[in-house]
Design a protein around this nucleic acid. Structure first.
Lengths: 249, 249
DNA sequence: GAGTGACCTCGAACACTGTACGAGACCCCC
DNA sequence: GGGGGTCTCGTACAGTGTTCGAGGTCACTC
């Protein structure tokens, strides 16, 4: 087997740059994000991206090793859109980061497909997790528990938001509203849930409900996030030696 | 704009089947899962799959509308691998489903890439969520809170496991061990975390630690899952008479 | 047995994809 | 005037998913 190395944009050191002229990496990444936002993950091709920039497709390969690197950079751009809150209260910080990350993912649904292929080592991603960890350390967590608690918040946020974003973006790319999709899915849902009367009943309930589905999803996200934070708080009170600072929050 | 419909394997009714001969959909799905497990998401192509089955690539299109449908079916196969526990204790049921789903995702890392493009309407996926919801209803949740609580557990489980599975599978497909990858990533981590002294310190700590990374990740997952379940339990004790409010809204 | 029509297979073709390679263009510095 | 680095891009290759239509194979009916 050949000597393989694990590579990433963040493992290579950047090339020297001449004065601003022609393409630049920042410009390319910006265009990538735009293209992804407008037309979705499947529509991104190097040729299209080149055309959008008024350049040949293969010119991009001077600035970026391959398409994956481009996606890594685009991903960190999304993390960069998360506004980092300043607050003393760890609950406020963590829940703000969670809601901010959720908003960023919803605004850039292709994020789902990129995440996970590499540990997020971009500066913006690290910034997010550093703020989170700092807040949790202030809350009273110590050692690896800080990482664990931070991971719990991020995992929940991503797990809850990514599929939702993917779904709404799939709808958008087909030019469908949520109501239309529900209409198309209804018979299948009907048939599929026949074996499960209890969820069948709730499906019909929510289909007939007049609550805006968007609000519905926000309520759901909030419910789970509160559970996560309450659970973390409980850990702190259970090990009172850990929670010296807890009273202030 | 043309009249678009939202389609899925689960929205079409199945074709009539002649007696067993030649290809069958079950056989194709089984082969798909095998191929995905062995060679990963990128390696799956219709031609390769056809070859594996001793058939032409385009023959598959008789049994399956397109590659996406194939992936939907494969995804439900993964949900089918989750062993559904029987227990009176809602904590036992939910945590067993969570661990079971985690194991299934770790065994089939390509699951990540499929999830979210469609609401999981396959029979096995519904079975999972029905068991979860039934347990939560027994615990005392009512109305939409049942769905919210179930979604919280699933979201956390998926969000925590999917990136981990994707990463370990990326390593495997490059023939690297976790230690080798860490070695390759180390300088980049070093450089990137320089601006964040507190996580920098913990990075070095865990790099030098002798704990098996697999165990480390299990501990992390367990930590978060307990937090979620504790948080849910807290909601129950806080509103002991929720069932009264069931009909409103 | 002949005929019919549904079920099923598949080769060819189309319009794409990511990217390796090498030829050239531009520009700065000696 | 040279180099030599930075940067662009046309061509080419090996693949992709999917459509189409021609054909083959069977279970039927007449």
């Amino acid at each position: 087997m050949p000597e393989q190395r694990f590579t990433s944009v963040w493992t290579r050191e950047s090339k020297p740059r001449r004065a601003q002229q022609g393409l630049s990496r920042e410009q390319i990444v910006r265009a990538t994000v735009e293209l992804l936002d407008d037309e979705g993950m499947e529509a991104l091709s190097m040729r299209k991206l080149g055309a959008k920039l008024g350049a040949g497709a293969t010119s991009l390969y001077w600035h970026v090793a391959n398409k994956n690197e481009l996606l890594e950079l685009a991903m960190d751009e999304v993390f960069g859109a998360v506004r980092i809150p300043e607050s003393e209260s760890w609950r406020e910080v963590t829940s703000n980061v969670a809601w901010g990350l959720r908003a960023a993912i919803m605004a850039h649904p292709w994020f789902t497909f990129v995440l996970g292929t590499l540990p997020a080592l971009g500066p913006n991603a690290l910034n997010c997790s550093a703020t989170l960890c700092a807040a949790l350390a202030r809350a009273g967590f110590t050692g690896t528990d800080i990482d664990y608690a931070g991971a719990a918040v991020l995992s929940y946020t991503i797990g809850a938001t990514a599929p939702e974003a993917a779904y709404t973006s799939a709808l958008k790319s087909r030019g469908l509203t949520m109501a239309e999709a529900n209409r198309d899915l209804a018979p299948a849902v009907e048939r599929a849930t026949r074996a499960h009367p209890e969820i069948h009943a709730r499906f019909q309930e929510s289909a007939g409900s007049s609550i805006d589905p968007l609000v519905h999803r926000q309520l759901s996200f909030d419910f789970g996030l509160l559970a996560v934070l309450d659970g973390l708080a409980m850990k702190l009170t259970r090990n009172p030696d850990m929670s010296a600072n807890q009273a202030t929050n």
